[in-house]
């Protein structure tokens, strides 16, 4: 529920009505185009040069116990709609640029930081994922892994406020990202990857079974290769790294 509210508030949609288990939202045109999947309607309006009429929609977070009407939806954690909203949020805010605003009088100097959420996926005969937040000071090159706690209490704005000025980064964002990546690599290599060793062991055992099945049977080389490839895919340990989102932050130096 709080996710839906924060999501639509952040997307500048207004909340028309709210009860314990439902939320009625007036979509903006942008949100309607992106989320409601009615390209023909918008195409038609665009052609006519008319302004469209964005939908209002009601989300139920608990099954209302009656058949749903038009423009009503039951949304659950992890449902396709939920994922759609999430991936929209991710795309829309995959990169941010923010400036701290302080209330104190006088000129305020802001330092540049590069901050990213790394998304790590450990894959073998199973999968686990985690997010690793990591920040780099783009002047002195210092890392911070508690950047979010640092920014939690601050007022951040998408444009720079009066009497605030920024220091130009000495490290470009691109090379900053490379440094963050290298730092992550070092940390990963230090981890004990028991899961990967277990997976390799299992993979080896499976391959031995497979060999025993095809012993001296050369007619079935193709079949053997196919099964072998399947075992390799099923157990081969790998860590995939991507960036979920990140941004350039200008923050006042801590006193």
């Amino acid at each position: 529920m709080s996710f839906i509210r924060s999501f639509f508030t952040a997307c500048e949609c207004s909340i028309l009505e709210e009860s314990e288990h439902s939320l009625t939202i007036q979509l903006t045109e942008e949100a309607d185009r992106a989320l409601m999947n009615r390209p023909f309607y918008w195409h038609y309006k665009d052609r006519l040069g008319q302004a469209g009429d964005p939908m209002a929609i009601t989300f139920f977070t608990k099954d209302p116990g009656r058949p749903l009407k038009h423009q009503e939806e039951y949304i659950t954690f992890g449902s396709p709609r939920f994922h759609q909203l999430l991936s929209y949020a991710q795309k829309k805010a995959s990169f941010v640029q923010l400036y701290e605003t302080q209330k104190t009088a006088g000129m305020i100097q802001l330092d540049p930081w590069l901050f990213v959420h790394f998304h790590l996926s450990y894959e073998a005969n199973g999968k686990k994922e985690k997010l690793v937040p990591l920040a780099l000071h783009l002047i002195n090159g210092a890392f911070s892994d508690r950047f979010l706690e640092m920014t939690g209490s601050l007022t951040l704005s998408h444009s720079i406020s009066p009497y605030h000025y920024v220091l130009s980064p000495l490290i470009t964002p691109a090379s900053g990202l490379t440094r963050l990546k290298q730092k992550l690599w070092r940390d990963l290599l230090e981890e004990e990857h028991v899961w990967a060793q277990t997976a390799r062991k299992k993979q080896k055992a499976e391959l031995e079974l497979l060999q025993s099945f095809f012993e001296q049977d050369e007619d079935n080389a193709e079949h053997f290769e196919r099964e072998k490839a399947a075992i390799m895919r099923r157990f081969e340990p790998v860590i995939r790294v991507s960036v979920l989102n990140g941004g350039l932050f200008y923050l006042a130096r801590e006193k």
Binding site: S6, F7, T9, A10, C11, E12, A89, K92, A93, F95, V96, Q97, L98, L156, H158, G247
Partner: peptide, 8 residues
């Protein structure tokens, strides 16, 4: 960047 960016 857009206003709702930080929240999203």
């Amino acid at each position: 960047s857009t206003p709702g960016g930080w929240a999203l």
